[in-house]
């Protein structure tokens, strides 16, 4: 668990004292100023202490301002200025594919940048690498027509883990593809493969740059948002296939979102992938016919 060093030492025993199967399933760790410290593992929010006991919100371990400051110093390598732009977007990218979300009292500075007067919550999201997770999709992409796919799940439902697996499976093996990854938040690091990753750059710009300069066969990007469809539509007829993710509880939910609807209507995606709790994968055609899961 390489991410443990991001935590202030006071909170380490609380995580380390979790029972073995739970400890391996930790997906999030949260510090809140003066509020309960929580660990999300196995889909449950747990409030552990250093003695291996689980508490209620009334008597849980709580973070102080010094704890939050120390965790921020650890997350930013003691160099807050280096992460200022990411902080303005509410997150801190971490070198091992993990990510920290931050919240607090935000102020808009005269130069238009969002800054935090006080950070009151830090959420460390633990990255996972499940190499075979995206196989139900990538097997179809390898055998079937050259189409794109839209990955749908609620927040923290495994979209990034799925995309990381898809990038890995497509860019490795006996017939690897050239995969471009528009990785705005630095979460899609891969151990191997024909993968070109552009980090720290807004998705629209990254997609444009990757398409023009790196001629990918597949282009991956995480969490499409409002106003980000234009560069994707521009990349539509370049022969690049797109695998993107969007928040939603079901295919119907995704179709209601303007960004996803525009792209689906434009025919960018041949498959819809719905992620269900427990890392279950459901693959559908763009028309909604279930293929597996």
């Amino acid at each position: 668990m390489s991410w443990l060093h991001y935590l202030p030492p006071r909170f380490l025993p609380a995580v380390q004292s979790l029972p073995d199967p739970l400890r391996g399933q930790v997906t999030e760790v949260r510090l809140r100023l003066g509020k309960p410290f929580s660990v999300t593992a196995g889909g449950k929010n747990l409030l552990p202490d250093g003695d291996g006991h689980l508490h209620t919100t009334a008597d849980a371990l709580r973070a102080t301002g010094e704890d939050i400051d120390e965790m921020l110093a650890r997350l930013t390598e003691g160099s807050l200025y280096a992460f200022e732009d990411c902080m303005a977007n509410g997150y801190l990218p971490l070198p091992d594919g993990c990510r920290a979300g931050v919240a607090g009292d935000a102020v808009l500075s005269p130069d238009g940048k969002l800054r935090f007067r006080t950070v009151t919550s830090v959420c460390l999201r633990v990255s996972r690498f499940l190499p075979a997770f995206a196989r139900p999709l990538t097997d179809r992409l390898r055998c079937g027509p050259p189409v794109g796919a839209l990955v749908i799940s609620p927040p923290a439902g495994g979209k990034t883990t799925f995309l990381r697996s898809a990038a890995y499976l497509l860019s490795t093996g006996p017939r690897p593809y050239r995969v471009g990854v528009a990785d705005e938040r630095g979460e899609l690091d891969l151990p191997d493969g024909l993968c070109d990753r552009l980090t720290g750059c807004a998705k629209g710009r990254a997609i444009e740059l990757l398409t023009r300069t790196l001629s990918p066969e597949y282009l991956l990007c995480d969490e499409l948002g409002v106003g980000e469809e234009a560069p994707l539509l521009a990349a539509q007829n370049t022969g690049v296939r797109l695998i993107a993710s969007v928040h939603g509880g079901s295919a119907e939910d995704a179709r209601k979102r303007p960004c996803a609807r525009t792209l689906l209507e434009a025919g960018l995606f041949g498959y819809l992938v719905v992620l269900e709790p427990g890392y279950r994968v459901k693959v559908l055609t763009a028309e909604g016919e279930t293929l597996c899961g």
Binding site: A73, T76, E77, G78, S79, L80, Y81, E84, D111, R115
Partner: peptide, 10 residues
């Protein structure tokens, strides 16, 4: 202040 300020303030 070292490493604890935004860029312009640093």
């Amino acid at each position: 202040s070292l490493g604890r300020l935004p860029l312009d303030a640093q």
